[in-house]
Structure formats: C-alpha cells, structure tokens
Design a protein around this nucleic acid. Structure first.
Lengths: 210, 210
DNA sequence: GTCTATATCCGGATAGAC
DNA sequence: GTCTATCCGGATATAGAC
C-alpha cells in the first residue's frame, strides 16, 4: 500500500478478478485437489507466486470462491412470506434458480462437487445456515398446506426437488447439451425449462387451474 | 498364470475387488486428478505397484469403474414398452432410480463428477448410447401424450427431471442428511422419497386419479 | 507489489529381486 | 504374481532480488 505505484489498487483489483475467474474454471475442471496453482496462474496470466501473495494458499482461494457462490445465491433468492400466493412464490423460486444455473453455471458446479465430496469446507454452513433456511421455508409451505392452498406434499422434499431439478441444467450441462444435440443454452431454452418445471411442479402441488 | 501358486485366481479376484472398492471411495472423495494411487493402495491394503500390475494405469482403473456404473444402471432399469400403462412405468422408473441412489451412492457420485467436469471419459457414451436411449423413451412418452393418456409435458425434460431428482439423494447425500439432521438413510426414508417423487411427478403428468 | 529461483515433498510409473 | 526401491516430473509454498 505504501509503495503503491498504480492508481488506487486498480491493478490489484483486476488481478484479483482474473485469478478468481481462472480458479473457478480450473476447480470445475479438476476439483480442489486436482487443480494446480500453476494452472490457475497460467490461465490468469500472472506468476504463481502472486496468487500466494494475494490468497496465501490454495484452500483460502477455494474458500473465497465458495463464499462467492453462497453470496450470489442469497442475494438473488427473494424472500418468501406466508401471506404470498403459493403459486406465484413457487414459480418465481423455480425460474430464479433456473436462471442462476444459466448465468452462474460454474458456481453451481463448484458447489455440487464440494457437496458430492462430502462438503469438507461447507459442512458447517449446511448444518447451520442452510438447515435454518429450509426450516423457515418448509414452515411456510406447511401453513399453505394446512390452509388447503396446496396439496399435502412433503415440504422438505419439495425443496430438494426444486434444488435438484434446476441445478441439474448447470451441473449436468454437458449431458443435457449432448443428449439434446445442442452446443450451448440459448435464452429460449431457459424460458422453456422454466415453463416445463414450473408447470409440472405447480401441477404436482395442485396449484394449477386446469 | 503359468506360475499361479493359489487356487484359480481367488486371491487375484479378491485383490481386484478390494482395489476397485478402494478406488471408488478415493475417486469420490478427491476426483480423478486429485486421487493418488498410493491412497488407493493404502485403502485396499496392497502395494502401489500391484495396482499398476492389475490395471496398467490410473485412467484404466477409472474407466473400469465408470463402466461398472453404466452396467449397473443398464441392468436395473427395466425396459419400457408403449403398450404399458404410463403411470405404472413412470412409477417403477422413479422408484428404481431412488433405490439405486440408495444401494450405489458412490457409483452415482463418480458419474456426477465425471459429467460436471465435462465428461472427458464419457462424452462418446453420452452422445451415442445415452442420446439413443433418451430418443427411444421420449418417443414412447410422446405416443402416450398423443393418445391423451398423459398431460402434454416435454418428454425429454421429464427424463431430466426424474434423473436429477432421484440421483440428488445419492450425489447430495451430505446436504440432505445434514439438512434433515440424519446420520444415514434408512429403508423407510427410501420408501418415503419414492412415495413423494412418484406422487408429485405422476400428478404433474396428469396420471393420478384425484 | 511483482516475479525468478529454489526448497521440499509427493505424484505416477517401472525395474528388478524374490 | 508380489513387493521394494527408485526414477523423474510436477506439486505447494517461500526466499529474496527487483
């Protein structure tokens, strides 16, 4: 800082972003242990030693990325109130998660691999924050069920269903694109996926007219 | 073979199984690149050099495991005929996949990580066999829709929904157990999950009475 | 703050004794 | 067929010149 030669850390900021972006891609491709600092450095276009200077070590860099994932998801997922209309809330929830799979596929993939491998860096977050989040949301779903506003489906598994079916389009992108013979998702694909999932799940919950 | 000292490869067979089982666990925990042959050897209780003697190299061992996954899935997933009852077929498909997530969680996890990382070893299988499998099944779903036997939902995305929602209980086992505050799945959990998914998806497809 | 050079250790794979 | 010893490239991390 005292010897800062450039205008207010602009270079540092850019380097930071480059490194985080490069790390994200490498961690998706090879997992935490399988990713080398050298590969991240090469992709980011900086010397390997700089990454250690910025992030201390590999685990710290990885934790920063995981934290970013959780932040994005928290910011985008609107609040749910028991007074809201169930169909509206569920549909917006589903469509938001589908869109996040489209806009932040790597975030979803890193999170998925972390969980699959036993959540060594996220176990605390899951057993505290995430459990609390699910508890609050299922309570609201349950009041709707008690009021006869929706079919009596298990609220916890409903959340798992929405999580899994939406994140699938990010995590299993390769499989989806190969099976449907596409090169990449288009805006219209995302709309159609949202249409399909909202329609089927809302119908399954007894929240559709027809 | 010529210098075989033990009864007809019994030891070799046991070693093979030990190595495969150990490798499965290590690959789930650390991914392909992140897994070391030494760790597999330690877990299997054999010298590292033996694994190279049995499987030549790491990629070969990994490919063997992937092949086992595909074999298990193919064996267990019953055939679907257009003359069958849609509700019966879909419910059996869902419950079979839920049970496979319970009985073979590591198989599902290795497959999931392989796909998330871009399917470097399975791309061919996906773009040929899997695409063909989906093509056949969606054609059958479509005839049911044309005959008015089920609601007009997109058959391809219906398959993705069933895949994602069922495999979720294997791949995201850690998250599901932490959120629901359980130590491990019990037989009754599997039945309840099957009940929930069959009920919601069949209702969503218009295949339920009430 | 940045980057080169290096220390130290671990990776996959194999040679060769048994 | 089994296992010890070893090769050698690549891993994380840091020391120290600039």
């Amino acid at each position: 800082m005292s010897t800062q030669k450039y205008k207010t850390g602009k270079i540092r900021e850019r380097n930071n972003e480059n490194i985080l972006s490069a790390a994200e891609q490498e961690f998706v491709l090879h997992g935490f242990k399988g990713t080398s600092m050298q590969a991240i450095a090469d992709r980011a276009g900086v010397p390997k030693a700089n990454i250690h200077y910025y992030f201390k070590n590999k685990a710290n860099l990885y934790r920063t990325l995981l934290q970013n994932v959780l932040t994005v998801w928290n910011e985008e997922l609107a609040e749910i109130s028991p007074d809201s209309d169930p169909a509206t809330v569920l549909e917006r929830f589903i469509r938001t998660k589908v869109r996040l799979s489209y806009t932040h596929p790597n975030a979803s993939k890193i999170f998925a691999m972390e969980i699959i491998q036993g959540a060594p860096y996220l176990k605390d977050h899951i057993s505290v924050d995430m459990r609390q989040w699910v508890k609050e949301k299922t309570a609201i779903f349950q009041t709707w069920i008690d009021q006869g506003k929706m079919r009596p489906v298990d609220p916890t598994h409903l959340i798992f269903l929405i999580w899994s079916s939406t994140q699938h389009y990010a995590d299993f992108e390769t499989q989806v694109l190969e099976v449907t013979n596409k090169r990449k998702y288009e805006e219209e694909d995302i709309v159609r996926i949202g249409d399909f999932l909202a329609d089927l799940i809302l119908t399954g919950c007894g929240l559709k007219k027809d």
